[in-house]
Design a protein around this nucleic acid. Structure first.
Length: 485
RNA sequence: GGUGGCGUAGCCAAGUGGUAAGGCCGGAGUCUGCAAAACUCCUAUUCGUCGGUUCGAUUCCGACCGCCACCUCCA
């Protein structure tokens, strides 16, 4: 079964085939940098990240473009309040955005175009639309003539009369049609501006995505992603601008990420009920936040709560414990890998059972992700294998190191797609060099104490080390230590 | 008013026309000096309510109830 994506345009699950074989062009609507991003914003960025990772895992070459809106009304307003320039505010929030998303383990897009660096491209596109009689100039502003585009509304399925009936906003009298939207906004006194054929001003929001997507990815892109709130009017307007200008389909698959909610309501900047991503990152491991954000399929709303984050943290601990335990077998295998003959002969029932569990997991993971990136189901598959591995180890049923190493490899690779496991990087610094022998010494002393049933000393060593974030575990094969967070 | 979505165990969340993945929490055990980790067992005869189609529906259809979102900037 190949990849299927739910396309908002057709409202159906569609087989995915990129325009150019093996290559996927993807555009994701990025942040407007007037503030830090909140967890809800992070959900969309994360889904984009995972879609990209999965496409690459599936063998595609992906070019991902994510824009940064660094000029708009909110930026101007916020900068004025703070008494700094718009560009200063945008600059610092842009840096904060990359810092936050990197902490969440989101990989950079191939291009992060900024609106202010693409003014001339936007002016060209607007001019094209004016030349086609699809736009008109009023008092230094340029409006898109929605009437000119017969397919307007095809994404959001809104009819002109519907749009008027529920209009919650005062109609700008200068517009020919209330649905018309601005592509170029004339600057008011004191506002930042760029020169244009129609006078000083700044670009409208929708035009930037049209022109930047086309510049960096071509006139037709494969996947266009964004939050569900962008479906209308933002994406509808992007389609109108782009398709009227080029006569070609703008995006082939439209992907819309459902909202993150809090207390049952949408988390939104204007609701003032948001949690900054950076604040969450200060409290919870990035992997736990990722786990939480993909614990529901991306088209389903997800409710934020401290409790949910804690659940994710606990679940992740289980996954981590399993993978850390498996590391050992990985190393064992490397040492004995010359001895292939004995290993192939020695395939026990337990091996066969675990081997088939690994295969099942792999298949289930792929099926889940192939069905519109069902991360919730994919994680179910991962945890089923975790369970199976733990059982095999606990029962010491004679599973070979080779098989366990294979389990680790499969778990590791699938977790990498979701970004929910980060290997405890081996401390190659001086600390580890000293720490290893030192801890071995402590464990030895503790073992002596235990042999003499001196539980006070034994427990003291364990307790004090725990305070230093080092956890001791007594197993059948002796005591082990590891860092805990 | 228009458009769309959701309602599955204590909580979170998959899923299917043939009888409910996974995670968290909780309870009882195993192991252990005690921990920790792990394992075993238990925790939805039932999928918002009421009808219909069907041999059979949680899954399809209809009505109703409840919740949410978009139609204004918002991921």
């Amino acid at each position: 079964m190949g990849l299927k994506i739910y396309n908002s345009l057709s409202r159906q699950l569609e087989d995915f085939t990129p325009l150019r074989e093996g290559q996927v062009s993807m555009y994701s609507c990025g942040p407007t940098v007037y503030d830090y991003i909140h967890i809800g914003n992070a959900r969309t960025a994360l889904v984009t990240d995972i879609i990209r990772r999965y496409l690459e895992y599936s063998g595609y070459t992906v070019k991902l473009v994510q824009n940064v809106t660094d000029i708009d009304d909110k930026i101007i307003a916020r900068a004025q309040t703070l008494g700094i320039s718009s560009s200063q505010l945008a600059q610092s929030n842009c840096e904060a955005y990359f810092e936050d998303t990197q902490r969440l383990g989101i990989q950079s897009a191939d291009v992060h175009p900024k609106a202010t660096e693409h003014i001339s491209e936007m002016i060209d596109l607007i001019q094209t639309l004016i030349d086609k009689d699809a736009a008109y100039v009023v008092d230094g502003s340029v409006y898109y003539r929605v009437n000119k585009f017969s397919e307007y509304g095809k994404l959001s399925r809104r009819k002109p009369e519907d749009l008027l009936a529920g209009a919650r906003v005062e109609v700008d009298k200068r517009k020919e049609d209330p649905r018309d939207f601005d592509m170029w906004k004339a600057a008011k006194p004191g506002e930042p501006y760029w020169e244009s054929p129609w006078g000083p001003g700044r670009p409208g929001w929708h035009i930037e995505c049209s022109s930047m997507a086309m510049k960096h990815l071509g006139e037709t892109i494969d996947i266009h992603a964004g939050g569900e709130d962008l479906l209308f009017p933002h994406h509808e307007n992007e389609i109108a601008q782009s398709e009227l200008a080029t006569g070609k389909p703008f995006a082939r698959y439209w992907v819309h990420v459902a909202f993150l909610k809090i207390d049952g309501r949408r988390m939104g900047k204007s609701e003032r009920n948001f949690i900054f991503l950076r604040d969450a990152l200060d409290r919870y491991p990035a992997e736990a936040i990722r786990h939480f954000l993909i614990s529901a399929q991306y088209r389903h709303p997800l409710d934020y709560s401290l409790e949910s984050l804690q659940k994710s943290e606990s679940a992740l601990k289980r996954l981590n414990n399993c993978l850390e335990t498996l590391k050992k077998y990985d190393e064992d295998t490397n040492e004995t890998s010359d001895d292939k003959t004995t290993q192939t002969l020695d395939v026990s029932k337990a091996d066969i059972s675990l081997l088939s569990a690994i295969e099942n997991m792999q298949a289930q993971f792929t099926d889940a992700m192939n069905t519109d990136f069902n991360t919730a189901q994919a994680m179910g598959a991962i945890f089923s294998l975790v369970s199976h591995v733990n059982k095999s180890i606990a029962n010491s049923n004679g599973v070979s190191s080779n098989t366990l190493a294979k389990a680790r490899k499969t778990l590791y690779e699938t977790c990498q797609v979701l970004g929910i496991y980060t290997e405890n990087e081996e401390d190659t610094s001086n600390t580890a060099e000293y720490l290893n022998p030192l801890l071995e010494l402590l464990l030895e002393i503790r073992q002596d104490a235990r042999n003499q049933k001196d539980w006070d000393t034994s427990d003291k060593i364990r307790d004090r080390l725990k305070q230093l974030n080092i956890e001791i575990q007594d197993t059948h094969e002796g005591s082990t230590w590891k860092f805990i967070s």
